[in-house]
Simulated assay, not measured.
Amino acid sequence: MEKTYLTHILFVVFCLDMVMRVCCQDYPSAEVTAVYIVTLKHAPAYNYYDELRKRNSVSKHGSSPVLSRLDNPGNVSRSDAQYCYILRMHDSLLRKVLSGEKYLKLYSYHYLINGFAVLITPQQANKLSLRREVANVVLDFSVRTATTHTPQFLGLPQGAWVQEGGYNSAGEGIVIGFIDTGIDPTHPSFADDLAANAYPVPQHFSGICEVTRDFPSGSCNRKLIGARHFAASAITRGIFNASQDYASPFDGDGHGTHTASIASGNHGIPVIVAGHHFGNASGMAPRSQ
Rank of each mutant, 00 (worst) to 15 (best):
84 C>V: 12
43 A>E: 11
258 H>W: 07
9 I>C: 09
28 P>R: 07
255 H>R: 09
281 A>K: 12
99 S>T: 10
186 T>F: 05
122 P>E: 07
216 P>N: 11
79 S>R: 14
289 Q>T: 09
107 Y>K: 11
257 T>F: 08
160 A>C: 06
121 T>Y: 02
118 V>C: 04
109 Y>C: 06
59 S>Q: 13
18 M>I: 13
133 E>H: 07
75 N>R: 10
222 R>E: 04
286 P>N: 06
83 Y>V: 12
114 N>F: 05
130 L>W: 03
16 L>V: 12
66 V>D: 12
248 S>G: 01
50 D>G: 06
145 T>W: 08
288 S>Q: 08
228 R>M: 15
256 G>E: 06
98 L>G: 12
40 L>P: 03
80 D>V: 14
30 A>N: 09
97 V>W: 02
53 R>E: 04
135 A>V: 09
186 T>Q: 03
117 A>S: 14
210 E>H: 07
264 S>R: 01
124 Q>E: 09
97 V>G: 03
179 I>A: 09
78 R>C: 01
277 H>P: 05
195 A>N: 03
237 R>M: 15
205 F>W: 12
183 I>W: 00
163 Q>W: 02
121 T>E: 08
171 G>D: 05
206 S>D: 14
31 E>M: 01
172 E>W: 06
91 D>F: 10
284 M>A: 13
174 I>S: 04
226 G>A: 15
277 H>Y: 12
138 V>F: 05
64 S>I: 02
60 K>C: 14
96 K>S: 15
247 A>H: 13
98 L>V: 10
178 F>W: 02
139 L>R: 14
54 K>F: 13
100 G>E: 02
193 D>W: 06
20 M>R: 14
52 L>P: 05
14 F>P: 07
244 Q>P: 05
222 R>G: 02
30 A>I: 12
97 V>N: 00
29 S>G: 08
115 G>A: 07
99 S>G: 10
30 A>P: 00
222 R>S: 13
151 P>K: 04
266 N>G: 13
201 V>G: 01
186 T>K: 00
153 F>H: 11
111 Y>I: 12
258 H>P: 04
33 T>A: 04
63 S>L: 14
270 P>K: 03
213 R>Q: 15
269 I>F: 07
112 L>R: 10
15 C>D: 07
230 F>S: 09
240 F>L: 12
32 V>F: 06
217 S>L: 15
177 G>C: 11
278 F>E: 00
248 S>Y: 00
153 F>Q: 09
260 A>Y: 01
284 M>R: 04
48 Y>E: 05
29 S>Y: 01
187 H>R: 02
